[in-house]
């Protein structure tokens, strides 16, 4: 199976435009970018669902493989190779900002500019470092997820029904509604990988022009965490979006797109 099919990749926009790869974070799939990605249709826009998330092929999910972020980064690089794209801007939200760091390290010629949306290199406090959470907080997250499968079991029946009725649109609607539903064991593993990971040392490896975008108020990736990323990625630019929440691309899509565009097309990248 192709990498594109496995990751439910969609390629759109200008054929000769500079590639921009939008990678969603922990939680929901590529639909997270729906208010921002269309603003870049003068670029080659690549959207994907990380292995195990959104509309990716969960049959291809191998728990032993996806126990490190490098595996996700390798997927992104493999996709770019398959699509024959290089010199891409990787726009990564949350944990995928770090996936971007690793993908850039794996293939600097493929991933040559990074846009980090609400990044954190480490979610757990340690000494003077402020990540915003304790180990117990992450245990609490996993327990909360165990109690909430958010309808993971529900959509399959609906999809079968829609298929039987011959309604492709029904299937599409179900898929869209299920974009935040992840198989519970996969969600648990990805949450643990995301929130227990430590990518602080990887930041020094970044040699790409980098934009760090953060929200004015973000309880998941606090301002201190964003500033740490900015200070540890050489030459990076920090922009704070005046919005509340961990997903400025949802709560302030216009300002988010503007900031990305002025960075990417403004000569800095």
């Amino acid at each position: 199976m192709s990498v594109a099919a496995r990751l439910n990749a969609h390629v759109d926009g200008a054929v000769d435009g500079r590639p921009m790869v939008f990678v969603h974070g922990f939680g929901c799939g590529q639909q997270m970018w729906r208010f921002v990605a269309p603003a870049f249709d003068d670029h080659r826009v690549v959207l994907l669902d990380l292995a195990g998330s959104g509309g990716s092929d969960v049959r291809a999910y191998d728990a032993a493989r996806y126990d490190r972020l490098e595996a996700y980064a390798q997927d992104v690089v493999d996709l770019l190779v398959e699509l024959d794209l290089d010199d891409a801007v990787l726009v990564g939200h949350s944990v995928s900002a770090m996936i971007g760091v690793l993908a850039h390290a794996l293939a600097p010629e493929r991933v040559s500019t990074l846009v980090m949306v609400a990044p954190s290199a480490r979610y757990i406090d340690e000494g003077d470092y402020v990540g915003g959470f304790s180990e117990a907080d992450i245990d609490d997250l996993l327990a909360t997820m165990d109690r909430n499968h958010l309808g993971w079991q529900a959509p399959l029946a609906g999809m079968v029904g829609a298929t039987a009725a011959g309604g492709d649109t029904g299937v599409a609607a179900e898929l869209e509604e299920s974009f935040c539903r992840t198989r519970p064991d996969i969600a648990r593993q990805f949450a643990s990988l995301t929130f227990r990971g430590d990518n602080r040392a990887d930041l020094a490896r970044v040699a790409a022009p980098t934009l760090v975008l953060q929200s004015a108020v973000d309880v998941v990736a606090p301002p201190e965490a964003g500033r740490f990323v900015h200070e540890n990625v050489r030459g990076s630019q920090l922009v704070t979006i005046d919005t509340v929440g961990h997903s400025p691309h949802l709560t302030a899509p216009g300002a988010t797109a503007d900031a990305i565009r002025s960075f990417v097309d403004g000569g800095r990248a």
């Binding site: 922990f26 959470f133 907080d137 992450i138 997250l141 327990a143 929130f195 309880v219």
Partner: peptide, 29 residues
């Protein structure tokens, strides 16, 4: 909310509300 609920609100519930307009029976503290 507890830390877990705080994260889940941002990573799942807000995106779901924006997409489908509702969330149902979510267990939080």
């Amino acid at each position: 909310l507890s830390a877990g609920g705080r994260i889940m609100t941002q990573t799942h519930l807000l995106p779901m509300l924006r997409r489908t307009g509702r969330i149902d029976e979510v267990a939080l503290d």
